[in-house]
Computed example of a mutant assay.
Amino acid sequence: MFAYELQQARHADLLREADAQRLANVARAARKARRALARRSGHNAPEGQVNTDHGRFATAA
């Protein structure tokens, strides 16, 4: 009976691990999609908004 209980506990652990991995994959895919959407909409694009803070660096001599 003890071996059966160990098997049941291990099975439950594996199900929890699989569920956690599935949730991580969904979050990773959502983050990737959000970045792709931002890239398509012009945010963080190389041709995007220019920083206009001219006082940030001193002029060269």
Rank of each mutant, 00 (worst) to 15 (best):
18 A>T: 11
46 P>V: 06
5 E>T: 03
21 Q>F: 08
49 Q>L: 06
60 A>D: 06
28 R>N: 13
51 N>R: 06
58 A>G: 14
31 R>T: 05
43 H>P: 00
9 A>K: 10
45 A>E: 06
53 D>N: 09
16 R>C: 04
3 A>Q: 15
30 A>T: 15
13 D>M: 13
58 A>M: 05
33 A>T: 10
14 L>W: 15
6 L>M: 15
24 A>S: 13
24 A>M: 10
55 G>P: 01
57 F>S: 03
3 A>K: 14
59 T>C: 04
14 L>V: 09
57 F>R: 03
42 G>F: 01
36 A>S: 10
13 D>H: 14
21 Q>S: 13
45 A>L: 04
5 E>C: 08
11 H>M: 12
11 H>D: 11
14 L>Y: 13
34 R>Y: 11
15 L>S: 02
20 A>G: 07
26 V>K: 11
19 D>A: 05
27 A>S: 08
30 A>H: 15
47 E>F: 13
37 L>D: 07
51 N>S: 12
57 F>H: 08
11 H>F: 12
8 Q>N: 09
21 Q>P: 00
14 L>A: 11
16 R>L: 09
7 Q>I: 14
45 A>P: 00
57 F>K: 04
24 A>P: 00
43 H>R: 07
26 V>D: 04
44 N>F: 10
19 D>L: 08
1 M>P: 00
57 F>P: 01
15 L>I: 07
32 K>D: 03
21 Q>T: 09
11 H>K: 13
1 M>Y: 07
61 A>D: 05
15 L>K: 00
46 P>L: 12
41 S>V: 04
15 L>A: 06
7 Q>H: 14
29 A>P: 01
26 V>F: 11
20 A>C: 10
55 G>W: 07
30 A>Y: 12
5 E>F: 03
21 Q>M: 11
1 M>A: 13
44 N>L: 11
23 L>Q: 08
8 Q>S: 10
47 E>S: 15
40 R>T: 09
40 R>M: 08
42 G>V: 00
46 P>S: 11
17 E>G: 00
24 A>T: 02
56 R>T: 08
18 A>S: 10
51 N>Y: 01
3 A>R: 14
30 A>G: 15
58 A>E: 01
17 E>R: 01
29 A>I: 12
18 A>L: 08
46 P>C: 11
60 A>G: 05
56 R>G: 05
53 D>Q: 11
24 A>D: 06
9 A>V: 12
19 D>I: 08
26 V>R: 09
44 N>K: 10
33 A>E: 13
16 R>P: 00
56 R>D: 03
